[in-house]
Deep mutational scan, measured.
Amino acid sequence: NTKMVRFKKGDSVGLRLAGGNDVGIFVAGIQEGTSAEQEGLQEGDQILKVNTQDFRGLVREDAVLYLLEIPKGEMVTILAQSRADVYRDILACGR
């Protein structure tokens, strides 16, 4: 149940992230009207890879910085997997 989305970065990627470290990086929110939303990313999706950067094992701050450093107008390719069950557990633990 993995999906790959590809879009051109606007002012931002339009994602709020949660998790990090051993639990993985998850989409915690999506800005309305962004390409990330239009391409089908959803809250609870685990981000496995962005462009050439493996997101598994990253701390959340490093994942956020990586997304911020992608220049506006560059193509962004995100490999994600729907993991809403794991995401709910992360929220319940306050991570």
Rank of each mutant, 00 (worst) to 15 (best):
N1W: 03
N1L: 08
N1P: 00
N1G: 06
N1S: 07
N1Q: 00
N1A: 03
N1M: 10
T2R: 06
T2L: 14
T2H: 09
K3V: 02
K3N: 00
K3Y: 10
K3R: 06
K3L: 01
M4R: 09
V5Q: 00
V5G: 02
V5S: 01
V5A: 03
V5Y: 05
V5T: 00
V5L: 05
R6C: 12
R6H: 09
R6L: 04
R6D: 03
R6F: 05
F7A: 01
F7R: 00
K8S: 06
K8C: 10
K8A: 08
K8R: 15
K8E: 08
K9Y: 03
K9T: 00
K9N: 02
K9R: 01
K9C: 04
G10C: 11
G10R: 05
G10D: 10
G10S: 09
D11C: 06
D11I: 05
S12V: 10
S12R: 10
S12C: 10
S12G: 11
S12N: 13
V13I: 14
V13G: 04
V13K: 05
V13P: 05
V13Y: 09
G14I: 01
G14A: 02
G14F: 00
G14T: 09
L15Q: 00
L15E: 08
R16Q: 14
R16N: 12
R16M: 10
L17P: 06
L17S: 04
L17C: 02
L17H: 02
L17D: 00
L17R: 03
A18V: 14
A18M: 13
A18K: 07
A18Q: 09
G19V: 01
G19W: 02
G19Y: 03
G20V: 02
G20L: 03
N21L: 14
N21K: 15
N21A: 15
D22K: 11
D22A: 08
D22H: 01
D22T: 07
V23P: 00
V23Q: 09
V23M: 08
V23A: 09
V23T: 12
G24C: 05
G24K: 09
G24D: 06
I25G: 03
I25L: 06
I25D: 05
I25V: 03
I25M: 02
F26H: 00
F26R: 05
V27T: 06
V27L: 04
V27Q: 02
V27R: 02
V27A: 05
A28V: 12
A28M: 09
A28Q: 05
A28H: 05
A28N: 01
G29V: 01
G29F: 01
G29C: 03
G29W: 11
G29P: 01
I30G: 02
I30Y: 08
I30M: 07
I30N: 04
Q31S: 13
Q31C: 14
Q31L: 10
Q31M: 12
Q31A: 12
E32Q: 12
E32S: 14
E32I: 00
E32W: 02
G33I: 09
G33T: 01
G33C: 06
G33S: 07
G33A: 05
G33Q: 04
T34S: 15
T34E: 07
T34V: 10
T34F: 10
S35H: 10
S35M: 13
S35V: 12
S35D: 13
S35R: 12
S35Q: 13
A36Y: 10
A36G: 08
A36N: 04
A36L: 12
E37P: 07
E37N: 05
E37Y: 12
E37L: 09
E37I: 10
E37D: 13
Q38T: 11
Q38I: 13
Q38V: 14
Q38W: 10
G40H: 02
G40W: 06
G40V: 04
L41G: 00
L41F: 03
L41S: 03
L41I: 08
L41H: 04
L41K: 00
L41E: 01
Q42E: 14
Q42R: 14
Q42P: 04
Q42F: 06
E43P: 10
E43R: 08
E43H: 06
E43A: 11
G44M: 07
G44R: 01
G44N: 02
D45L: 03
D45M: 03
D45P: 01
Q46M: 14
Q46C: 04
Q46A: 01
I47H: 10
I47T: 07
L48A: 00
L48D: 05
L48S: 05
L48P: 01
K49Y: 07
K49C: 08
K49T: 08
V50G: 03
V50S: 01
V50W: 00
V50L: 04
V50R: 00
N51G: 06
N51Q: 05
N51S: 05
N51H: 02
N51A: 05
N51E: 08
T52F: 01
T52Y: 05
T52R: 10
T52C: 11
T52M: 09
Q53L: 09
Q53T: 08
Q53W: 03
Q53D: 01
Q53F: 06
Q53I: 08
D54F: 06
D54A: 05
D54E: 07
F55M: 04
F55A: 01
F55R: 05
F55E: 09
F55I: 06
R56S: 10
R56M: 08
R56I: 04
G57P: 04
G57T: 10
G57W: 04
G57L: 02
G57K: 09
G57N: 13
L58F: 07
L58A: 06
L58Q: 02
V59W: 07
R60S: 09
R60M: 14
R60N: 09
R60C: 12
E61N: 08
E61T: 07
E61P: 02
D62Q: 13
D62E: 15
D62I: 04
A63C: 09
A63V: 06
A63R: 04
V64E: 15
V64W: 14
V64Q: 15
V64F: 12
L65H: 14
L65M: 14
L65R: 15
Y66K: 08
Y66L: 03
Y66H: 10
L67Y: 01
L67N: 07
L67V: 03
L68N: 15
E69K: 12
E69A: 12
E69Y: 10
E69H: 12
I70N: 05
P71W: 03
P71L: 06
P71K: 07
K72R: 11
K72F: 04
K72A: 08
K72N: 08
K72H: 03
G73M: 08
G73T: 05
G73C: 06
E74C: 07
E74Y: 05
E74L: 03
M75C: 07
M75H: 07
M75Y: 10
M75T: 13
V76P: 02
V76R: 03
V76N: 01
T77D: 10
T77I: 03
T77R: 04
T77W: 04
I78M: 08
I78H: 02
I78Q: 08
L79C: 09
L79V: 14
A80I: 03
A80S: 03
A80Q: 05
A80C: 11
Q81L: 08
Q81F: 02
Q81K: 12
S82I: 00
S82D: 10
S82P: 14
S82M: 00
S82Y: 01
R83Y: 04
R83M: 09
R83Q: 11
A84F: 14
A84D: 10
A84R: 13
A84C: 11
A84K: 12
D85P: 12
V86A: 11
V86M: 11
V86C: 10
V86G: 08
Y87H: 11
Y87I: 09
Y87L: 05
Y87M: 10
Y87P: 11
R88G: 10
D89R: 12
D89M: 07
D89V: 03
D89Q: 12
I90C: 10
I90L: 14
I90Q: 13
I90H: 13
I90A: 11
L91Q: 13
L91F: 13
L91C: 12
L91W: 10
L91T: 13
L91E: 12
A92K: 13
C93Y: 13
C93L: 12
C93T: 13
G94W: 05
G94V: 05
R95Y: 14
R95L: 15
R95D: 15
R95S: 12
R95M: 15
R95E: 14
R95A: 15
